[in-house]
């Protein structure tokens, strides 16, 4: 796997950072790869800007910052506005189409996932990010499904494990 840069954008409380942690955990602990995850957020505990950056690679990662994301995951409309200009040519934009509707056409693929409404069907909109991750893994095969599932198991509180795993699997079933 070559260096793959992923940027996750959204607002505080959406699980932006967790999305990054799950990708990094799956890669390093369960998929034999290297990963660096960094983050940026504003001082509000809820509702402020949040951004997670993840770099995945088969080799040791030097530069730890995402420069031109191969994959941009936008959990909120604001993230599209803020980050789409940085996406690599022919990159992949994954959006929660319930929250981010307007996407200008450009030199990138768009994967639209109605993640919030799917998550609502699963019982809680807070797992929209897991739906997105499922769809992303199905689309790209970036990391293995077992690695992702183990990462979810070790990263979320025991009480929330079933909810998160179900949402991830629901995302895997999403018709692309």
């Amino acid at each position: 796997m070559n260096r793959t840069e992923i940027l996750v954008g959204g607002v505080g409380g959406q699980g932006v950072i967790l999305t990054g942690i799950l990708l990094g955990t799956a890669a390093t602990l369960f998929d034999g790869k290297k990963a660096v995850q960094t983050q940026a957020y504003s001082s509000e505990q809820r509702g402020g800007m949040a951004r997670a950056e993840v770099i995945l690679s088969s080799e040791a990662i030097t530069d730890p910052q995402v420069r031109k994301p191969d994959i941009l995951i936008a959990l909120a409309e604001d993230a599209v506005i803020r980050h789409l200009k940085k996406i690599k040519p022919q990159g992949l934009l994954v959006i929660d189409s319930d929250l981010a509707q307007e996407v200008k056409p450009g030199d990138y693929q768009v994967l639209k996932v109605p993640a919030t409404s799917m998550a609502e069907q699963e019982g809680n909109i807070v797992v929209a990010n897991l739906i997105i991750l499922g769809a992303l893994i199905k689309k790209t095969g970036l990391l293995s499904v077992p690695a992702m599932e183990k990462a979810i198991e070790v990263s979320v509180p025991p009480k929330a494990k079933a909810l998160n795993l179900n949402a991830f699997r629901r995302g895997l079933e999403f018709k692309i």
Binding site: G20, G24, A35, Q37, T38
Partner: peptide, 9 residues
């Protein structure tokens, strides 16, 4: 803040 909040192996 960058290294403090960075996650890696």
């Amino acid at each position: 803040a960058f290294v403090g909040h960075m996650r890696e192996e």
